[in-house]
Amino acid sequence: MDKHSKTKDIILKAEEIQWIPFSLPGWTGTTTAAFINADLEKAPFIAMAKLAPEANLQRHYHNIAVESVYVVEGELINNGEVLKAGSFLIHGPGVEHGPHTTKTGCTLMFIQFPGVTIEDSVLV
């Protein structure tokens, strides 16, 4: 039996990424998002978000998802701590995190496993 997956690579070039206006309960300020992978058969849920200066996401937790947040550009402020570009924020289910805000604006990459839904995000 062949142990190698027959699933093809997911390739999305920078110029192909589609940014759309995005908001959820608990978000304030201007945010756009790009959904890189929502097919959980192929890979974890991956999304990106661009937060404008002073955007804010209320403190929350996820019941199911493990979440990794990578700061691509700018600075994210997580619960008062500044995370510069290149920083990671990682937490498991039930771990409260945030509020998230930014003074400079920032671009974030979210990797969530096994995926996250609006029902899985609980505002504190």
Rank of each mutant, 00 (worst) to 15 (best):
M1E: 04
D2P: 00
K3C: 01
T7V: 14
T7F: 15
K8P: 00
K8N: 12
D9S: 10
I10D: 14
I11A: 02
L12P: 06
E15K: 09
E15Y: 00
Q18S: 10
W19A: 06
P21G: 01
F22I: 00
S23E: 05
S23L: 03
W27I: 12
T28V: 06
G29W: 05
G29R: 01
G29V: 00
T31H: 00
A34N: 10
A34M: 12
F35G: 03
D39A: 00
A43E: 00
I46W: 00
M48H: 05
A49K: 08
A49T: 02
L51N: 02
A52I: 11
A52R: 13
E54A: 15
A55N: 01
N56Y: 10
Q58G: 03
Q58M: 07
H62C: 06
H62L: 06
N63E: 13
N63W: 07
I64A: 03
E67A: 00
S68T: 03
S68G: 09
V69C: 15
V69W: 15
Y70D: 09
V71I: 11
V71Y: 00
E73N: 12
E73R: 11
G74P: 14
I77K: 09
I77S: 08
G80A: 01
E81A: 14
E81C: 07
V82K: 15
K84C: 13
A85M: 06
A85G: 08
G86D: 10
L89N: 11
L89M: 08
I90H: 13
V95A: 11
H97G: 04
H97M: 12
H100L: 12
T101D: 10
K103R: 14
T104V: 06
G105N: 07
C106A: 12
C106H: 08
F110A: 07
F113I: 05
F113D: 02
V116L: 02
V116R: 01
E119G: 05
D120Y: 12
D120N: 08
S121E: 13
S121P: 08
V122I: 13
V124W: 15
